[in-house]
Design a protein around this nucleic acid. Structure first.
Lengths: 348, 348
DNA sequence: ATCACAGCTGGGAGCGCTCCCACCGTACCC
DNA sequence: GGGTACGGTGGGAGCGCTCCCAGCTGTGAT
């Protein structure tokens, strides 16, 4: 009678119990086979596997989650305002990578967009209730309370990018410093004498790193880092425009600009045009991110490519480790930095 | 002793039972209050609500899902190859909208990226197992078997865009025809005499619609639709380049081009430059989608904006209806078409 | 032959919820 | 007064799984 009682779709599929009956074994044994426990004889295992195949048995995730107190899911948390800024390819490439890596697992990917404090609170509740096994955090701000909350409730988590040089939470980051440095070295190598930079908001570590890379390259060339050649903006196009105007008024003689993001480079490019500066003839321009914007600019923008999709994949791998070895809090927290690569186009 | 047995995080939180004990009522009553059943007296309801507040009780989703045979989740299915094409903003804007609308619900958003047939099969299994309450399908191809599968297993589903004029599954679409028509009318209104179009792959309904809009506008202006002015491509930049070359060789006298996507317009724009045609002076150019690419082109591209985020929201609303009224298969399947809007920039 | 101890196995006892049925009391009717 | 009806309620019986503990078998040592 049971199972017929409710018409709910999804009922009526074979259960563990039925598989056990068919294979002539007990529930526990089937469970062991399903979960790949080694404590099962080959004979039994084969019998169970056959029954599974015949019945087309698929484990019920929900029941499993309830019984084992696992969620079988990880959350990808994306603070909304951020994505507007980082925009396009970064965001979707991360998702792509995460999805790809997760496909091999049995874990679900839960997407959580956060745009209001209320939603942030909801998420906090949700996570505290351990409804996921781990959390992937994209583009966290230095003052974000989430990472600490996660640490407190012992929820495995991985960041994309770090909040500071001494990040305690596991993370996967790009080599921002190295990427910026190679960009500026490239500019200098092409004979540019006066190379300026447009930085991101300097309360963000990523922006600090890219500025650091700029400085390193400038100094490596035996030059000084001049304050007049550094203008900071906010990763937006409008910010890029403002910074470029400022730079141009301070140092009209500049002949190279490294913008810490493609979008800011796009803004800078507009101002350059307004001022009658040709790119790359008068001013060589390099961006960071190698987004679609870079490819579609006129001229196409030289930019620093991040392995964004690979970052997504790496984040999952790190998270999986965290989840598995969760018990030993003493173990080193995995942290990795992925290389970047300069993509040369006509703007430099 | 129970509850201590395992150290699993998440245990130890208050349960329905504890709330019931505290409120001095039975489990069933608490459940009724939680789920907003009207068959509860005000006195009791108040008592329960207080107990809930005091204990900080949050229902256990997993247990609920198991008992009620619901999943409390909807899947957003994104065929990978597609997103490469539609790229950027469309994809993330849909997600944005879906996420926003779902935030008010108790439903989880499951992201499912499909890139291989194997993954498609996995998804099919997964859906057949009714592990979600409904499905959001983005950019479905005409020959995709998924919609039919969903119909067969009576899984509520909503498409973004339709596969043909006679789409049977509920969908939310943009007014592709109207958008294209207004774009071409705009071109003609600006005095362009010879307006060509670059279409998408014509086995896609969306491409057909946009071509249809082009034709309608041309005819409305009392002109003929000339085969030489129509080149079809595949929504890619390279396709746009090829199509533009073809058009230019067939009708060197053209002075307006409507590309059925921004990315193709970007390709076309490059070819126009190579051929020494100025935009918009010699050739006016209009795209479709109003993506970031459009804003960053030189000159910025006039384009047809779709209410992509609103599409995401609408999809969720429609899906929710489908899930609720799921029993009456006779009810009309909700289908809606969202308006588009021409965004004028310097390219036309 | 006896004991110890592995390696396997079956199945009870949950996990936290929803469903549903039986039951309570009160109000109303004839 | 006894019946009927009904809003309101408690709690048993699951949902399908994992965990874990007893128990069962066969092997090797004594």
């Amino acid at each position: 009678m049971a199972g017929t009682r409710r018409h709910g779709a999804g009922r009526g599929r074979p259960t563990l119990e039925e598989v056990a009956a068919r294979a002539g074994v007990g529930r526990g044994t089937v469970s062991r086979v399903i979960n790949g426990s080694p404590r099962v004889s080959d004979r039994t295992r084969t019998a169970v596997e056959q029954a599974v195949a015949e019945l087309g048995y698929v484990p019920n995730r929900v029941a499993r989650a309830l019984a084992a107190n696992r969620a079988d899911a990880v959350a990808l948390v994306i603070p909304e305002p951020e994505t507007r800024v980082f925009a396009e390819p970064y965001f979707s490439d991360i998702i792509r990578g995460v999805g790809a890596e997760l496909a091999d697992t049995d874990l679900q990917l839960l997407l959580t967009l956060i745009r209001t404090p209320k939603e942030r609170q909801r998420l906090a509740d949700y996570l505290s209730a351990h409804r996921v096994d781990g959390v992937l955090l994209v583009s966290v701000h230095a003052d974000d309370p989430l990472p600490d909350l996660l640490e407190r409730i012992e929820m495995p988590a991985v960041l994309s990018g770090r909040r500071s040089a001494h990040e305690s939470v596991p993370y996967v980051d790009s080599d921002n410093t190295g990427g910026a440095q190679s960009a500026v070295e490239h500019l200098i190598g092409r004979g540019r004498e006066t190379v300026a930079t447009i930085t991101g908001p300097l309360d963000m570590y990523v922006a600090q790193c890219r500025l650091e890379g700029y400085s390193a390259a400038v100094r490596a060339a035996g030059r000084e880092v001049e304050a007049e050649l550094v203008a900071s903006a906010d990763f937006t196009e409008e910010g890029g425009r403002r910074a470029m105007r400022q730079l141009l008024s301070q140092r009209p003689d500049l002949d190279g600009v490294f913008a810490a993001s493609d979008v800011m480079a796009a803004g800078a490019r507009q101002v350059l045009r307004e001022h009658g500066r040709r790119v790359p003839d008068d001013v060589a321009l390099v961006g960071f991110e190698d987004s679609a914007v870079a490819r579609h600019m006129d001229p196409p923008l030289t930019s620093v490519r991040q392995a964004t999709e690979e970052m997504g994949r790496a984040m999952v791998r790190v998270l999986l480790e965290e989840i598995d070895g969760h018990s030993d809090r003493t173990a080193k927290r995995p942290q990795m930095v992925l290389p970047t690569q300069l993509v040369r186009r006509e703007s430099s």
